[in-house]
């Protein structure tokens, strides 16, 4: 009996914090999303009315929401595979027995991960400046036309994706390196004896054995990338022509610029549902492909 009490005392501080500042607000967000909580309610809570699913219905009819969801999905669909490919490439290079000065290269490649998003996003803004930016100067030196990176609605999101890849690839690189080191070296030796090329070793040994790691990394990266906010907030302020407004950007604007906390909560929950569905789908597809792999 006494032991039970001790255990709960040890748990209490953390559970209270998580309960009061996370669980309670999450439930509150769900409740809020069924109300018309707005600036008037902020002034006087008696102005709140229950509106059922109205916020969700209205969301489905708002072009801004679909646009924001589209931008976010674009960021995820292009950004995640690109990030993972760069991470895997870097991990394979670092893991090669031929690589020199591995500790130095690992630190250098990982450094962007620990930097502050806001600070390096500002750096990005100047590097990709159309007229004075170093990137366009480099393009000119190579004899290519300058690109209006942040002023052209077609280029703004790709620029943000490049930023995200640069900033984040080091994280998954470390995880892939651990995964690669867990693959038994004998497999590669046997493959080399049989005369398998490095490319075939990658396809038939490395990638299949790395599959669990790949799946976990994919799921974590997808849910991270769905939460796009600081990058467009700092680099483009959602522009040009709203082309980089993400779902969270919309939620922030709706909630903290216009104080429509009811409909902003609906935006937050819609994002959560999309993320949940995508994760569940990824798990399911990967399970099926694993099973088929076993039969083949």
């Amino acid at each position: 009996m006494n032991r039970q009490r001790v255990a709960w005392l040890f748990l209490a501080p953390a559970l209270i914090v998580l309960g009061v500042f996370f669980l309670l607000p999450v439930l509150g967000a769900l409740a809020l999303s069924f109300t018309d909580y707005d600036l008037y309610a902020l002034a006087d809570p008696r102005n709140v009315r229950f509106v059922g699913l109205h916020n969700y219905g209205a969301l489905l009819h708002r072009p801004e929401f679909w646009a924001a969801l589209g931008h976010t999905v674009y960021f995820v669909v292009v950004g995640v595979p690109l990030s993972m490919a760069v991470s895997l490439g870097a991990a394979l290079l670092l893991n090669s027995p031929l690589a020199r000065a591995r500790a130095f290269f690992r630190t250098a490649l990982f450094a962007p991960v620990v930097t502050t998003v806001v600070a390096v996003a500002i750096v990005w803004r100047y590097l990709f400046n159309t007229k004075y930016g170093v990137i366009n100067a480099l393009l000119a030196w190579l004899g290519l036309h300058p690109v209006d990176w942040l002023g052209d609605p077609h280029w703004a999101m790709p620029t943000i994706i490049l930023f995200a890849v640069w900033k984040n690839f080091g994280y998954n690189m470390i995880i892939f390196m651990a995964g690669l080191q867990a693959i038994p070296a004998e497999l590669y030796e046997a493959a080399r004896m049989d005369g398998a090329s490095p490319w075939r070793q990658l396809r038939h040994i490395t990638l299949p054995l790395l599959q669990p790691t790949l799946l976990m990394v994919a799921i974590l990266t997808v849910s991270g990338y769905f939460q796009l906010f600081a990058e467009p907030y700092v680099i483009t302020e959602g522009g040009p022509l709203q082309s980089t407004v993400s779902v969270l950007y919309l939620m922030y604007d709706e909630g903290f610029t216009w104080w429509n906390l009811g409909s902003a909560s609906a935006v937050a929950f819609a994002l959560f549902l999309v993320m949940f569905a995508v994760t569940a789908l990824m798990l399911r597809l990967s399970r099926r492909s694993l099973r088929e792999g076993e039969w083949a």
Partner: peptide
């Protein structure tokens, strides 16, 4: 659950 879901009510709290 993404942390941002909690942010609106957290602000009110």
């Amino acid at each position: 659950i993404p942390a941002q879901v909690a942010m609106l009510p957290l602000f009110l709290l």
